[in-house]
Amino acid sequence: MIRLAWRQFRTEAVVAVVGLVVVAIVLGATGPHLVHVFRTAPSQLTNTYRTLQGAAAVLVLVAPAILGIFFGAPLVARELETGTFRLAWTQSVSRRSWVVVKFALVGLVTSGVAGGLSLMVAWWANPINIVNADRFSPANFGMFGVVPFGYALFAFALGATAGLVFGRTLPAMATTLVGYVAARLAVTYWIRPHFEAPLRLSLPLSKLSGLGFTRSPSGPVTIGAIPPNIPNAWALSASIVDDAGHAPTARYLARVCPTLAGGPGSGAVGVTRSGPAPGGGIQTCIARIATKFHAVVTYQPASRYWPFQAYETALFAVVALALAALSVWWVRHRLV
């Protein structure tokens, strides 16, 4: 049965491996230059191979979805569409074995391709990641480490299961795309921050990356904080509170910052360390606020990067296994 599953999947697998080889050649040819720039002029790294950096990031990001759509969705759906399942299921192999072998073989290859791609890009982008020190950020977390293996496993299982349940390739492909994107977003913003309770850090306002004031046309002024950059950590939120834990009231802000409250129209005023120099009035009012208030930052520290990688990979892998189990059940109890 393994040989049959491999024979049916061979062409796709070869295409995937050729794709990996092409990527390897491109990255291998350009990687040494990145290392050279890193050693000589690290500040220039972000501007080196900009297009390639963007392309590599997109490739790693979409690879699991693409593999789920093109390897997963048609896996069983094609057999159901063309009627070949009636040929396959009347050979001397139980359909349970049939579905288990197909899922295991194609799922592992899919995971290996997406994970291998991520590892190659991680090697290539290593100097950039060292300089940027932002591997824990939502944009980068899913690109490197072991999570791409889990993502691909999940996207594959989603596609294959949808194909089995719908019995048609096209709706299964659409389901894979939508389901994968939804799962990634949901996990990134709703689940990953809660793998472990975030740490809290109290800072003077001057340590923040910036402050922002917002004022509606007739409404009160509010103040927001931009968390500081903690290397390789993931800053979740920052808030401004006094020693009792209360945020500044609108009345207080209007009193200490009359320029903001009395200004014309509505809008937002941002104050950042690197941004354009704000008006003197605002600096004065920030200085006044800082005497009474401080910032509280919640974050996941850099030391939790690998545990979080493990949690998230396990989460996607477990869901993938559950989908595979559903498929085995479906093929034995619903398609009869």
Binding site: M1, R3, L4, R7, A88, Q91, S92, V93
Partner: peptide
């Protein structure tokens, strides 16, 4: 060939 792979007889 596939017939041989999936049928012991």
């Amino acid at each position: 060939r596939l017939g041989g792979w999936v049928n012991p007889t």
